[in-house]
């Protein structure tokens, strides 16, 4: 590139530059006020002892974080979140993929079943949590009524049992997420060329399993990676069902990251401490995205 050409290429017409700035200005202002500054403030808050309603605050360095490390409540909350994510992500991906494959495998009932599995995604989570609460109610719930009829004398108390509460919440999480993963997998499946399946048949892939291993699974690779990341992030964010159904109980058995952050910040008004938890949450999300980009670079991209 010669010097003579460079200015020509760089200098946009003044009108165009002006238009560009004007058109981005509203978004830029909103971005600064509603996203950038608050996020930076949240990061800064994490290093203070700020409490809502108190007159001032002090910079306390990493004290919030060392308190987090010592806080048994936080450790439980982190552990619960990991368990919740560990159940919800694989199950909702496996079931979503299974549903997508079954729907794609034939013509009958496609629209119907797609709609059925997708319904939880568009349903008001709070309302459906209430429905689950009734369904899982220890004494009057249909699930335990059915279990008792099957001869199980004292079925679990589900949401009110510290042994079962995480599993119950995870079941609701899977129910909420499987329609979402299914839709993404369906989009991925339609992008696979039909001729590859014909070629696989000719090449001797007799059984559906062989064709799945030879064609579907590898070609779904990029979709699967994306679905894994987004499902991880969605399930790390679990909040609504906990806030509605258990408030972290019984006995902290369902305390999860965002709920702890909410309680510290908006119930106890310890904003500095809450911001520190938010930062941990942010680091986890960023870490997941980073892993996805690494994996994408590494492998699943077929040039």
């Amino acid at each position: 590139m010669s010097d003579a050409v460079l200015p020509l290429r760089r200098a946009a017409p003044i009108g165009e530059a002006l238009a560009g700035l004007m058109l981005t200005a509203p978004a830029a202002i909103a971005y600064a006020v509603m996203l950038l500054l608050p996020t930076l403030a949240a990061v800064a808050l994490a290093f203070t002892d700020y409490e809502l309603g108190m007159p001032g605050f002090a910079w306390i360095g990493l004290d919030n974080f060392s308190e987090l490390l010592a806080d048994r409540g936080f450790a439980v909350s982190l552990r619960n979140t990991v368990i919740y994510v560990g159940i919800v992500t694989p199950l909702s991906i496996a079931l979503g993929l299974g549903a997508a494959l079954l729907i794609e495998a034939g013509i009958r009932g496609r629209a119907l079943f797609r709609a059925v599995f997708f319904l939880p995604v568009v349903s008001l989570t709070v309302a459906m949590a209430a429905a689950w609460q009734y369904l899982l109610h220890p004494t009057i719930g249909p699930l335990n009524a059915a279990l008792r009829r099957l001869g199980i004398a004292d079925p679990p108390f589900w949401l009110s049992s510290s042994d079962w509460v995480l599993a119950s919440l995870a079941a609701i999480g899977v129910w909420e997420n499987l329609g979402y993963t299914m839709v993404l997998f369906l989009a991925g499946l339609t992008a696979i060329p039909r001729e590859l399946y014909a070629a696989a048949q000719m090449d001797g892939a007799r059984r559906a399993v062989d064709r799945f291993r030879l064609v579907t699974w590898p070609l779904l690779g990029p979709t699967t990676l994306f679905v894994v990341t987004i499902t991880l992030i969605r399930s790390v964010r679990v909040f609504d069902t906990v806030a509605v159904l258990t408030q972290g109980g019984p006995n902290r058995a369902s305390e999860v990251l965002l709920y702890t952050m909410y309680r510290e910040g908006f119930t106890y008004l310890r904003l500095g401490y809450s911001a520190a938890i938010t930062l941990v949450f942010l680091v986890i999300v960023l870490g997941l995205v980073w892993l996805q980009t690494k994996a994408l670079d590494r492998k699943i991209h077929y040039g």
Partner: peptide, 26 residues
């Protein structure tokens, strides 16, 4: 459009995508 600061603006967008709405909430 070509305008000064476009690349920075787009970088800001990509960065913003990474921040869950719970972070600026406090």
């Amino acid at each position: 459009l070509r305008f000064p600061g476009r690349d920075i603006a787009f970088g800001a967008v990509m960065l913003g995508l990474l921040v869950p709405p719970h972070v600026p909430a406090l």
